[in-house]
Deep mutational scan, measured.
Amino acid sequence: LYHVLGLDKNATSDDIKKSYRKLALKYHPDKNPDNPEAADKFKEINNAHAILTDATKRNIYD
């Protein structure tokens, strides 16, 4: 999941948040209406963010 956000395992919560915002804006379906690959990437980014920002889920993942 870290690679989805372009981060390593030592990433801080701020790093995760910044990377998520940058990538979410880039791949958001509203910005890429005719690109199904961007929509899939956006879903991956959201999933990675949801797990890595939840301390319990992140510990389980790590």
Rank of each mutant, 00 (worst) to 15 (best):
L1Y: 13
L1N: 15
Y2A: 03
Y2T: 06
Y2N: 13
Y2C: 01
Y2V: 00
Y2H: 03
H3T: 13
V4E: 05
V4S: 08
L5Y: 02
L5K: 04
G6E: 00
G6Y: 01
D8P: 14
D8M: 06
K9H: 06
N10S: 10
N10T: 12
N10L: 06
N10I: 01
N10P: 00
A11M: 00
T12D: 03
T12Y: 00
T12F: 00
T12A: 00
S13C: 09
S13K: 11
S13F: 07
D14Y: 04
D14I: 11
D14H: 05
D15E: 12
I16G: 04
I16R: 02
I16V: 08
K17G: 08
K18C: 11
S19W: 00
S19E: 11
S19Y: 07
S19G: 07
S19K: 05
Y20H: 14
K22C: 09
K22N: 09
K22T: 14
L23W: 04
L23V: 03
A24D: 02
A24S: 14
A24M: 13
L25T: 13
L25D: 15
L25G: 07
K26Y: 02
K26E: 14
Y27V: 02
Y27S: 09
Y27I: 01
Y27F: 15
H28F: 02
H28R: 09
H28K: 14
P29T: 07
D30L: 12
D30M: 11
D30K: 14
D30V: 09
K31D: 11
K31V: 10
N32V: 05
P33L: 03
P33W: 00
D34S: 05
D34W: 00
D34F: 00
N35H: 09
E37C: 09
A38F: 09
A38W: 07
A38H: 10
A38D: 10
A39P: 07
A39N: 13
A39L: 13
A39G: 12
D40Y: 12
D40G: 11
D40F: 13
K41G: 04
K41C: 02
K41F: 04
F42P: 05
F42L: 15
E44V: 08
E44I: 01
E44M: 11
I45L: 13
I45S: 03
I45D: 06
I45Q: 04
I45P: 04
N46Q: 12
N46R: 13
N46T: 15
A48P: 05
A48E: 05
H49V: 11
H49R: 13
H49M: 13
H49K: 12
H49C: 05
A50E: 02
A50R: 13
A50M: 11
I51W: 01
I51Q: 13
I51C: 10
L52W: 04
L52I: 02
D54C: 03
A55D: 03
K57G: 05
K57A: 12
K57C: 01
R58I: 03
N59P: 14
I60N: 15
I60V: 15
I60R: 14
Y61L: 11
Y61I: 10
D62M: 01
D62I: 01
D62E: 06
D62A: 09
